[in-house]
Amino acid sequence: METEFTLNGHAEVVDAPDHELLIDTLRARMRLTGTKRSCDVEICGACTVLRDGQAISACTTLTADVDGADVVTVEGLADGDELHPVQQAFVDHSAAQCGFCTPGMVMSVVALCLEYPDADEERIKEYLSSTLCRCTGYVKIIEAAQQALEQM
């Protein structure tokens, strides 16, 4: 089935089997490997992408289900060499350790900034509560989210 969608600002048409998952289209077909496969059951958040501005798990979304949608992955955030404010905030606060969960964390915070520009710490925690990091704590990630919210 052909799926027409916008990916990181560009119109795309993908002719994929009906059962193909978005994470496989992104990683294997489009070679966008910033979206990570980890738990594969919608719990860890490593595969978080935006569909029409809302966070979803690419691991459990059919590619066909983004037909007509605007999809943004972590690769679509930076403007050339200039990092997106959320990415820059993660750098400024050293909010990554091994970095595997970071793309999902960043996308979750981007979704937060879009949906709740005035988010307080409780709201930040709500958005990060289902994005799992197994190396560091969440303090620096929350600080990064706070900086991003101030700057956006």
Binding site: E42, I43, G45, Q54, A55, I56, S108, S130
Partner: peptide
């Protein structure tokens, strides 16, 4: 509803 699964699941 806010407690159902997580934000990504609730969006879909």
């Amino acid at each position: 509803e806010k407690a159902v699964a997580n934000i990504r699941v609730r969006n879909a």
